[in-house]
């Protein structure tokens, strides 16, 4: 799942040259992600995994690292699987 997230962001040119080798826990904000890039990441992840982020997950924390994004996707797919 994390690999899929990484490939997806690399494909969308999020932090090009950095995202490919960033640690799963590395802080993407520190690596140069900007607030306005969040919208691109959100849309890409939603399209790829068929989920929709609720407002309470649309924070800097959710998009802080590949691991955090992956966790959010997992929790959303689990939630939507239940409903």
């Amino acid at each position: 799942m994390e690999r899929r997230v990484r490939l997806l962001l690399a494909g969308r040119s999020v932090l090009p040259g950095v995202i490919e080798s960033a640690d799963a826990g590395a802080d993407l904000w520190e690596l140069g992600m900007e607030s306005l890039a969040m919208v691109g990441v959100m849309v890409a992840v939603e399209d790829e995994f068929g989920v929709e982020f609720p407002d309470e997950l649309l924070t800097r924390e959710t998009f802080r690292s590949l691991a955090a994004i992956t966790d959010a996707v997992l929790s959303l797919t689990a939630r939507e699987g239940r409903s």
Partner: peptide, 10 residues
């Protein structure tokens, strides 16, 4: 910026 090598948003 956090350091001379940091991107503008860090």
């Amino acid at each position: 910026r956090r350091g001379p090598g940091s991107p503008p948003g860090d």
